[in-house]
């Protein structure tokens, strides 16, 4: 619901005053493209595209101002993958794939960054590294960051935390 992927049965969701579910399907897709970045547990990178191409994927369906390539390089530099631009996902480690997913999620400068178990498939050290990157970029890019996680370590790094208990969200 927060990612405007499924409408709420009751209540509303707005982002910067815009209720995305009042838009038609085309407008809704464009809304997500511009405003929301996603990171999933399973990185969902396109296996046939290179690292650079995966990061640029959201820009293909957007009206662009021409400096997407540089922004992609900057983001990949920020996540430490500037030397892997032409590599395919099959040639990357789990942590590297998740960092690419992070760069892809931020390429459109979204207002909202949603992460679903971003470190769920990673070992502890890698998870900590990815988590640090996440916070770092979140601060740099000034996005709203919402993370769903089972990791207590990751959850502990957030100021605002909620817990889902028997279908209800409880603030911690």
């Amino acid at each position: 619901m927060l990612g405007a992927l499924e409408p709420p049965t009751i209540g509303t969701v707005t982002l910067d005053g815009q209720d995305p579910f009042k838009l038609n399907q085309t407008q809704l897709a464009a809304f997500r493209n511009r405003n929301i970045g996603f990171i999933f547990q399973d990185h969902c990178l396109l296996p046939q595209c290179s690292v650079m191409e995966n990061v640029l994927t959201p820009t293909l369906v957007a009206k662009n101002n021409g400096n997407e390539d540089q922004r992609a390089r900057d983001l990949l530099g920020a996540v430490g993958l500037l030397d892997r631009l032409e590599h395919r996902p099959a040639e990357l480690s789990g942590g590297e794939k998740q960092r690419v997913a992070l760069a892809r999620a931020l390429i459109m400068k979204p207002r909202l960054l949603l992460c679903d178990e971003p470190t769920g498939n990673l070992d502890q050290k890698t998870a900590e590294g990815v988590a640090s990157l996440l916070f770092q970029l979140h601060e740099q890019q000034q996005t709203i960051l919402i993370v769903v996680t089972h990791s207590q370590n990751l959850a502990g790094r957030f100021a605002n935390r909620c817990e889902l208990e028997e279908g209800h969200l409880k603030a911690l």
Binding site: L5, A29, C44, P47
Partner: peptide, 13 residues
């Protein structure tokens, strides 16, 4: 899953 991701990031039919 990849197509779903593309749908999530703004690809339409």
């Amino acid at each position: 899953r990849e197509l779903a991701l593309l749908a999530a990031i703004g690809y339409n039919s």
